[in-house]
């Protein structure tokens, strides 16, 4: 089960690639995140769970720079990313998906992919002027890499279609494939299986495990389906009311009384 996988794959137990300490974010009178503290081990697949309104998506937004924290610490690979803008955090090696998929609909699938390639001097005006000819060569190699990734996700035949014509599931795959272009070392997935049919859901999870094994990418994902969490996560972090109320192996967490209490009704029955 997931616990065995955890034992095998945590490359360096407690080698935190990502850490959050006493993180606080308030809006008006409301504390969405109220002193959250946790660590994510390098190479792990960690699930972030909790009832609605627990602050999970806000935490993602804080972690990736989309919202500025009030106070606390956020570190990625040992360096602070507190208050850094989203593009800077992305460039440090953290990729993410969004709850509502952000496939750039009016651009082709291929354009979506090529956009995501890092280190393109031709993306800067100055770069265009200093590399007037070589950027086209780079475009070719980026295109090749894009097609390879699209092949891996079985989207290659759609390369020249506008992303907006893709089905919801295909767009999820595209968003996933796209963020991999930047070779991130950690990926945050915000409800990766929401609104997706079970077959595709399993494909996505298979990709997650493959990428973790082959490239050592760390995954942190928000998920509501307890079975998915039990079967796929090495570790689980539980949030409620803006705080981390429990963390540990899936089997431990689901027996934790505080976790059971935090969930209302149906969820508690699933977990028990």
């Amino acid at each position: 089960m997931a616990d065995d996988r955890a034992a095998k794959h945590e490359l360096a137990p407690a080698d935190p690639i990502f850490a959050v300490r006493d993180l606080v974010k308030g809006f008006g009178g409301l504390r969405a995140v109220d002193g959250a503290t946790f660590e994510v081990s390098r190479g792990s697949i960690t699930a972030l769970i909790g009832p609605n309104g627990a602050g999970k998506t806000t935490l993602f937004n804080l972690a990736t720079g989309f919202i500025k924290p009030d106070r606390g610490a956020i570190e990625f690979e040992g360096q602070s990313v507190f208050g850094r803008p989203p593009h800077a955090v992305a460039r440090r090696g953290m990729g993410r998906t969004f709850q509502i998929t952000k496939a750039l609909a009016a651009m082709t699938v291929l354009d979506n992919m090529m956009l995501a390639a890092p280190d393109q001097p031709a993306e800067r005006l100055l770069g265009l002027l200093t590399h007037p000819l070589s950027w086209r060569r780079q475009e070719r190699s980026i295109r090749e890499r894009s097609m390879e990734l699209l092949e891996r996700f079985r989207l290659a035949s759609l390369a020249n279609s506008y992303a907006g014509t893709l089905s919801g599931g295909q767009r999820k795959l595209l968003e996933f494939a796209r963020l991999l272009m930047a070779k991130p070392r950690m990926v945050l997935l915000d409800e990766p299986l929401a609104g997706v049919n079970p077959v595709l859901g399993q494909q996505i999870l298979a990709h997650v495990h493959e990428l973790r094994s082959e490239e050592g990418i760390t995954f942190l994902f928000i998920e509501h389906d307890m079975e998915v969490v039990m079967n796929n996560a090495d570790r689980v972090i539980v949030m409620a009311f803006g705080r981390v109320i429990a963390s540990g192996l899936p089997s431990e967490v689901r027996r934790d009384q505080r976790v059971i209490d935090a969930y209302l009704g149906a969820h508690a029955e699933d977990v028990a």
């Binding site: 809006f27 008006g28 409301l30 969405a32 806000t58 989309f66 969004f98 709850q99 509502i100």
Partner: peptide, 8 residues
């Protein structure tokens, strides 16, 4: 979509 829903 990243703005919070709690009313300000």
């Amino acid at each position: 979509s990243l703005e919070p829903t709690p009313s300000e």
